[in-house]
Design a protein around this nucleic acid. Structure first.
Lengths: 221, 221
DNA sequence: GCTCGTTTGAAACGAACGTTTGAACTCTAT
DNA sequence: ATAGAGTTCAAACGTTCGTTTCAAACGAGC
């Protein structure tokens, strides 16, 4: 066998699957659709991956691994730059959000639609995906939760978890439905402008995370 | 024909469909599943609704109509109480979020799992659903966007749209995946506690919406 | 009591799905 | 040259899906 051949077929499937999963969702994407796009035989998926679920996991890992690695790198850089005292919240948010948003968008043209893939990872609660999510993201959120706590120690930990959760939801929504957003905003906002989106999200989330603690209800006026 | 009979079958289907859509999603739910749960014949769905898509729309409308009506009522009450000057932001957020969250949760036991239905409405970008979303929610978001603008006129309109979008994402995430959140927070946060969830979300979103405007990048420290 | 529109029932249709099979092909190592 | 592992291929399998069909059951109005 030639090593290039096996790699070619396998990666062609991965590439096509990635694009199609992003476009129509994990469950709705059919193997026949994928092999047609990859221009390989129908049985190739089962030969190389074993099952559709295994293919999903492979695509998932290939997509999300580098992103989480970059997240942790950026986090490490911030922690090294601030060995003591509070961490800069906006920088943490950017470290957490930028790799995902950037990688989802400004990639090779074939990944133009990959944006939605990340949104779907969060938004499609399937048992199989949930397991992968936990394994891939568990460590990352734990590390970042601790870092956020160092950044804003004044907000109690449960409240911090709530707010991180909300932030993930906001990010997922941003990734999931850009065309819908452009429409609903009457063209005022363009989610395809990655830097602008990231900046808006970071500012919004930073303020939300820093919100005054729970007890003062009379804040409302 | 007896009017009660037709109503019974039709509503049995609607009830069962609502529960199953919420549990497994719109696309994954099969008509056979629904008719089995409703204890009616397979053909009844097509007789009463015409197609699966029409059934989805019927369930959608029945779920979302009252919620949006309540939203607008609450909004109107706020606007009436404040004929001039800025509107209270937290009250607006509660008017926007509470009907959805409350109706999704604290309903009759059969609706225990309906929570996810709302999350799916936002998170499952299907062409058919997107159309319904626009029709059902278009007016509501427009009215609320204007009200938010009255509440915080200092944030420019495009930035406000971004932040409303993020808020919707945070709410959708909250509705979509409560068990996942309970796990990831190690039990510190219980999304089933509707009032607590709403309060946290309102505080987070209010702070995010009120965040200082874009120009000052040196806010980061 | 009979009739006719309305509703239910059991069974089937065609299409699409994930998966399996076994033969054909390709290339390396002997 | 040839054996054999690795890979591709066309075809099929069994299931499930949304939908259709058509006969049976039902109930109000004459």
């Amino acid at each position: 066998m030639s090593a290039t051949t096996v790699t070619d077929t396998k990666e062609a499937i991965l590439d096509a699957a990635e694009a199609i999963f992003a476009e129509v969702g994990f469950e709705k994407a059919s193997i026949r659709q994928i092999v047609a796009a990859a221009d390989v035989n129908l049985a190739a998926v089962h030969y190389h991956f074993g099952s559709k679920e295994a293919l999903v996991e492979a695509v998932f890992t290939r997509c999300v691994g580098p992103v989480n690695a970059e997240r942790l790198e950026l986090l490490h850089a911030i922690e090294s730059a601030h060995p003591a005292g509070p961490l800069p919240l906006e920088a943490l948010l950017e470290a957490f959000l930028a790799p995902m948003i950037r990688h989802a968008r400004a990639e090779a043209p074939r990944r133009a639609k990959m944006t939605r893939l990340y949104g779907r990872l969060v938004a499609e609660p399937s048992d199989a995906l949930e397991h992968m999510m936990k394994r891939q993201f568990g460590g990352v959120v734990k590390r970042f939760a601790a870092a956020f706590h160092r950044a804003i120690p004044e907000v109690p930990e449960p409240e911090l978890m709530w707010r991180i959760f909300f932030t993930v939801g906001a990010a997922a929504h941003l990734l999931l439905d850009p065309p819908g957003f452009k429409k609903v905003s009457h063209g005022m906002c363009d989610p395809a402008d990655v830097d602008a989106a990231l900046e808006h999200l970071v500012r919004y989330a930073a303020a939300g995370l820093r919100a005054p603690a729970a007890t003062l209800k009379e804040t409302r006026r």
